[in-house]
């Protein structure tokens, strides 16, 4: 059987297209948080499934890179597997699950729990780059609002949350101000991850394929989550710890065990959880099982 990938350029995109994307990336890094329009190409995976992130990764990936791909914090979710295989096949790139070993991490909806370093690049997949879109449907108008820093309307949205619910009710895709200039969508990461964007030593790149926009947060850049003085931004917390590794400070997924309300909570970041378990940290469930064995 002939391989379907034969005959394509290294990392799929042709070099002209890669250069075009890299130019857009440089512009994005020079104007933190600003959405740079770019000539997004049709990729062999569907729009909405990470075409923006994949194009950025393809444009900057080199033979010396080590790639990690996560979706919902985990390396083994189907789409993460699919994208990792895409680059293994088309760029023969070395892959890893360890965020510390990766030079390039492509992610959807999470930032790894382990802190990232200088020289690392975090590539986000972006479904909707425009943080103002839900408030203003016209692109011409939102570009003006960014141009003139007219962001009062976003604050009004948060005001409405507090008026209705007593607190800000935005839990993911929580809007941020980058370098006190551009309002930016952090992509649908939970607000739990927002503080990790702030002054992060790594390069953060954002690709929206369908909407044809690239934006970026350079290393050590201010990223402020919008809030009110008397209703400060806060992140999610859980009364539980991870049932597998006992971590009390990581983002937890809820796993339903039966239809009687039985559930357990486990780290959304699968590598983080596994490495803690290997270091001997045990959650409530693991301890129960060990006791059962004794």
């Amino acid at each position: 059987m002939c391989k379907p990938y034969s005959g394509y350029n290294y990392a799929y995109l042709d070099e002209q297209t890669k250069r075009m994307i890299r130019r857009a990336l440089l512009k994005a890094l020079a104007i933190p948080g600003y959405q740079v329009p770019f000539g997004s190409r049709e990729m062999p995976l569907p729009y909405g499934w990470g075409t923006g992130g994949v194009q950025i990764t393809a444009a900057i990936l080199g033979p010396k890179d080590v790639l990690k791909v996560i979706d919902q914090g985990a390396d083994d979710t189907t789409n993460a597997v699919s994208i990792r295989r895409f680059f293994e096949n088309l760029a023969q790139v070395k892959t890893t699950e360890d965020p510390r070993a990766a030079t390039l991490i492509q992610t959807r909806h999470r930032i790894p729990e382990m802190p990232l370093q200088e020289q690392q690049v975090l590539v986000y997949q972006v479904p909707q780059p425009e943080p103002l879109r839900s408030l203003e449907s016209s692109e011409q108008e939102t570009r003006k609002m960014h141009g003139y820093s007219e962001y009062g309307l976003m604050q009004v949205r948060l005001y409405e949350d507090i008026a209705r619910f007593g607190h800000i009710a935005t839990t993911y895709g929580y809007p941020v101000m980058v370098n006190e200039r551009y309002l930016m969508s952090p992509t649908p990461i939970p607000k739990f991850d927002n503080p990790k964007m702030h002054l992060n030593p790594c390069i953060q790149l954002f690709g929206a394929g369908r909407e044809k926009r690239i934006y970026a947060v350079p290393p050590y850049t201010q990223v402020r989550s919008l809030d009110f003085d008397d209703h400060p931004f806060s992140i999610q917390t859980w009364p539980q710890a991870c049932d597998l590794c006992g971590d009390q400070h990581s983002y937890l997924d809820e796993v339903v065990l039966d239809d009687q309300g039985g559930r357990m909570f486990v780290c959304s970041d699968s590598f983080h959880c596994q490495s803690r378990q290997q270091q001997g940290h045990l959650g409530a469930r693991q301890r129960q099982e060990e006791q059962a064995h004794d």
């Binding site: 009062g152 009004v156 005001y159 008397d230």
Partner: peptide, 8 residues
Amino acid sequence: MAVGARHY
């Protein structure tokens, strides 16, 4: 809020 009020 359009001119920067941030105290709910």
